[in-house]
């Protein structure tokens, strides 16, 4: 089961760097990320890192609102249509995506799709019926 680290951030100069500063000081490596913002002047930073628990703990200790959030991580082929192959299944299963991002796994020329959904457990079960299973954690977080 993979986790991203979600952090509440005000949309102000220097706030993003405050997060990366904490990660740097704790030797945490970022694998992938998304940053969203709302019209209300704040947003959420989602990070895929090599050590999610340690990252969340360090950010919380630094005074930030950080949370571990389950995400579905699927492997995909790193070639044209790779993402579409997976999304067809997600679409067929009727799972709604709140947020999505990806990364390349350099070792085996594979890519990784991360999706954030409303109901993680239900989505997991529905997607299993489509023969779509999440990757193991060491592949998600690893090099």
């Amino acid at each position: 089961m993979a986790y991203q680290v979600s952090i509440f951030l005000e949309n102000k100069p220097g706030h993003f760097e405050r997060v990366t500063g904490v990660l740097k000081a704790n030797g945490i490596n970022i694998r992938s990320m998304t940053l969203t913002h709302t019209v209300s002047g704040w947003g959420i930073l989602n990070l895929l890192v090599d050590q999610p628990e340690k990252a969340c703990e360090a950010l919380t200790k630094a005074g930030l609102s950080a949370a571990l959030r389950k995400v579905l991580a699927f492997g995909m082929e790193d070639h044209p249509g790779g993402l579409d192959d997976i999304l067809m299944k997600v679409s067929h299963a009727g799972v709604n995506i709140l947020n999505a991002y990806g990364r390349i796994i350099s070792k085996n020329e594979q890519a990784l799709l991360l999706i954030d959904v409303d109901d993680y457990d239900q989505a997991l079960a529905t997607l299993a019926a489509e023969d779509l299973y999440p990757l193991e954690d060491h592949l998600v977080y690893g090099n």
Binding site: T38, S40, W42
Partner: peptide, 18 residues
């Protein structure tokens, strides 16, 4: 302030709270 122990990374929940 958004409390650490309530925050779970869900944007919709924060917007509803607002």
């Amino acid at each position: 302030e958004v409390k650490k122990d309530w925050f779970n990374g869900d944007i919709a929940r924060l917007e509803k709270l607002t």
